[in-house]
Each structure stands twice: as C-alpha cells, then as structure tokens.
Nucleic acid binder design. Sequence first.
DNA 1: ACAGCCATGTAACTTGTTACATGATTTT
DNA 2: AAAATCATGTAACAAGTTACATGGCTGT
Lengths: 168, 168
Amino acid sequence: MSIRYGLLALLSRGPRHGYQLRQEFEASTGATWPLNIGQVYTTLSRLERDGLIRQGEADEQGRVVYEITEAGRAEVERWFGTPVTPADRPRDELVIKLAMAVATCPDALKVIQAQRTASMRAMQELTRAKRDTASPAQRLVLDSMIFQVEAEQRWLDHCEAVLREEQS
Amino acid sequence: MSIRYGLLALLSRGPRHGYQLRQEFEASTGATWPLNIGQVYTTLSRLERDGLIRQGEADEQGRVVYEITEAGRAEVERWFGTPVTPADRPRDELVIKLAMAVATCPDALKVIQAQRTASMRAMQELTRAKRDTASPAQRLVLDSMIFQVEAEQRWLDHCEAVLREEQS
DNA sequence: ACAGCCATGTAACTTGTTACATGATTTT
DNA sequence: AAAATCATGTAACAAGTTACATGGCTGT
C-alpha cells in the first residue's frame, strides 16, 4: 500500500495533478524505486473509486487536479498513527530463498556467498548514491537501505556460522 | 515471487501434493507469514500454466501430486544463483511513511515514537518466538527478522537525530 | 522539422490474498 | 454424532507494473 498511501499523503498537503505527484514522490523517495507515471494514474483512479480523493477543478493550464476528501484525510491520519509490524511486511525473498536452500540446495553456502558479494556491491552503490544526494528526505531513504544491507550482511554471516556448525 | 519460487524449490526435492507443500513451506518459514492453503493451489495452477511443474500420477491415497519439469528445475537453479538486490525488494512502507511524514505531517516525531514502541514490542515477541522454536530453519527466519528490527530501531534513532538537528 | 519533456490515460497483466464450496477421513 | 483435520479447488479481488496511445508545448 506504499504508493497508494504515499500519494494520498502528498495530496493531504494540497491539490496536485498526476505528473506533479510523481515528481514529488520521487523527490522524497529517490531513484531506487522509480515510479512509472502510468501507475500514478491507475492509483489515482482507485483512490477516487474508494472516495479518498476527488477531481477538483482543472488547472489554469488545464491540468487535471485531484484533491483529498474528508475520508481521505482521516485515512492518512490513521496511516500515520498506525505503526508497521513484521506481519505487515511482505515475505522477504532472500529469507525464503535461504530457508529453501538450507533444506534443498546442494550447497546453500554458495547461495550465501553470491548474496554476500551482491550485498557488498549494493553497499558501495548506496554510499556513492548518498554522497551524490543533496535532498535530506532521499538521504534518509538511502540511510534506511544502508542499515538494511548491514543487517543482511550480519544475517548472512550468522547463517553461514550456523550452517558450518551443523555440518561438523 | 517468494511463494512461487518457494513452492517450486520444494518441488525440486521431489513430487508433492498441495497440502504437503503448505506444511513444508510453513515448517521452513514459520508462523509470522501464514500461508493460506488456497494460495498454494492458485500458485500451483500458475506454475503449471507456465510449464514449470506438471501434474504427475495420483497418490496411493488419490491425492493430486505435482512434479517439477526440466524448465522448472532450470528456473530454480537460476533463482538460487541470482542474488536479491535492493531494487528487487518492494518499497518499504515504513520508509515511505516516514519520507512523507517529514515533509507532510504536523509532527513526524510522533510517528517515529509510535513506531519505536511497536518495534520494541515486535522485538520482544520475536525473541519469545525464537525461544519456543526448535526448528533450525524457522530460527534462521526469526533471526533475520530480529536483525531487521534492530536495523529499523537504529534507523529510527537516526531519523530522530536528523529531524531534531534540522529543527534547531 | 524534430527531439525531448510535459501530461493524461487505458489495457493487460502479475503476484498475493481471502472467502467460499466441497467432501473424505480421523479423533473425541 | 460432532468436531477437527486432511485435501482440493474456484471466484473475486487488491495492489503493483508495464506497454502503449495520445497530444501539447518547448527548445534547437
């Protein structure tokens, strides 16, 4: 629901049109997850269908402007007030992969090694991206990814240690 | 694609029927993400549609048994050999929420506080769950979540520090 | 004239998810 | 007899995603 609520939150600041929403969304969340412009419009249609936004009057340039409704405002409030729990998060593909590998794969250690290499490269790219990013919001997003990759690396080490212990 | 590839990986060990697949999947990945049995069958249909598995002969108990095809085996190999990158992961709802909150919300600090409380509670539940889990595979999954919540807590501290600095 | 950006939208698709229907077998 | 578990499946939907069509405007 990230995009859905993200756009709704942007609209709670004031009326916006679709193209503008993509710009602001990407300005906040950065280049790691590019947002296809088509998706903005599909998401806006669904938000309108659900009564959380409505089409306002057109721009002076004739652009279609959306504005948040009362129901939408309440929904944003609820969203900001509700923390994210582990159960809310989608299944982590890496975790599933390793869980399957330890039971299935000829050698799970190879999977771990390949992932570790990729993680290190990801870390390099993230630090480089952070160096090149001026926007504070985008830096926070990059920081989050850096912390997550660090956690991933720790977990990979841990998995390898557990595996080696089991084998011996 | 976690479920899709997860089931495919299980089938690469040998023929299985649907109910059994759910049991083995949950035995590996644990109780945090329960797998609805209906989803097993929808996913199996789609895997069959894509030529990655096929229906074999029925069980001695008359149960429908699926087996992996050559194409499926190749796909599993490819999956195990391909690392997960940050771009592969879905947008993190917490990250989006905070990125929106710092720019939109009356006070983002409240959002951070609420999340921190939830994170601490999540951590408690995860350590309790780990204490009660004998299966090594499930313990690894729980360890992954623990590392992730730790990273989340570090990031929340970091966000708060950055915010307070900006305000002053 | 043409390339590139601004701008809106739709059709088709994917995976994930749940609610429901159905019946057999096993346990209490 | 009733409850629980085993077992298979379908219908309907949500959210995310991309490819494509369409046209206006701007700078070279």
